[in-house]
C-alpha cells in the first residue's frame, strides 16, 4: 500500500513538473509608461504619453513560443503637455477617442533573440484598424518587490506609420512615423 502511494505521489509530482504552469504577470501602471515620439515640422522631437493602460504577460518557462503579451491603452488618456493639442489628438482628426476608446496590442508570436532580447509580433489595433507589428522587447530585469512579489521589467519599441491607421492629416506638421515606447513593470500573479 505504501509503495503504491509513493508511486502515485511521485507520478503526480512528475506530472506537475512537466506541465508547469505558465507565469502570469499583470502590468503595474504605477511603475510603467507608454510614451510616443513624433517629429514636429521636421525640426524637433515631440514626446507625449498615455496615462491609462493595462495589460498582462504570460511567460512559459519551458517554451517561449507559448509566451504572450496583451496591452490595452485608453486613447482618451493621451497627454502631450498641451491641453489644446490633446483635445485635437483625442478628436476625429487623430485618435477619435470617443468612437475608438482603446488601442490594443495582442501578440501572435514571441521569438527569443538572446537572454535579454525578444521579438514580439502581434496585432496592433488603433481606430478600429488592425495591423501586424513587431516589437523589439528587452528584458530589463526580474526580482522581488517590497512585498515579496516577483517583478519583471521590460522595455519595448515599435515604429508605427500613422497613415496605416487612417491618420493622414497634417502630414506637413506631424511626421508619418510615430515611435511608441512601452516600458513596463509587471507583477507575477
Amino acid at each position: 500500500m505504501i509503495v503504491r502511494f509513493t508511486l502515485f505521489a511521485t507520478l503526480l509530482a512528475l506530472t506537475g513538473i512537466t506541465s508547469a504552469k505558465a507565469d502570469n504577470y499583470k502590468i503595474d501602471p504605477a511603475h510603467s509608461a507608454i510614451i510616443f515620439k513624433a517629429v514636429h515640422l521636421g525640426v524637433g522631437n515631440l514626446y507625449g504619453r498615455f496615462d491609462t493602460f493595462s495589460g498582462e504577460l504570460v511567460l512559459d518557462p519551458n517554451d517561449s513560443a507559448k509566451d504572450s503579451v496583451k496591452v490595452e491603452i485608453t486613447t482618451d488618456s493621451i497627454d502631450s503637455n498641451s491641453a489644446a493639442r490633446d483635445k485635437d489628438l483625442k478628436g476625429p482628426d487623430f485618435l477619435n477617442a470617443k468612437q475608438f476608446p482603446t488601442a490594443t496590442f495582442k501578440s501572435t508570436a514571441v521569438k527569443k533573440v538572446d537572454d535579454k532580447d525578444y521579438e514580439v509580433t502581434g496585432d496592433f489595433t488603433l481606430r478600429g484598424i488592425t495591423k501586424p507589428v513587431t516589437l523589439a522587447v528587452q528584458v530589463i530585469g526580474t526580482g522581488p518587490g517590497p512585498r515579496g512579489e516577483t517583478r519583471l521589467g521590460t522595455e519595448s519599441t515599435v515604429t508605427l506609420k500613422r497613415s496605416d491607421f487612417d491618420m493622414k492629416t497634417f502630414s506637413q506638421v506631424v511626421s508619418e512615423d510615430i515611435q511608441l515606447r512601452i516600458a513596463v513593470e509587471a507583477v507575477k500573479q
Binding site: 476625429p92 477619435n96 481606430r127 487612417d166 493622414k168
Partner: peptide, 14 residues
C-alpha cells in the same frame, strides 16, 4: 484634400 483622401468603405461617421 483636407483629410488626405476618401475612405471606402467608410468606417467612421466623418
Amino acid at each position: 484634400v483636407i483629410v488626405g483622401g476618401i475612405t471606402f468603405p467608410p468606417r467612421e461617421a466623418t
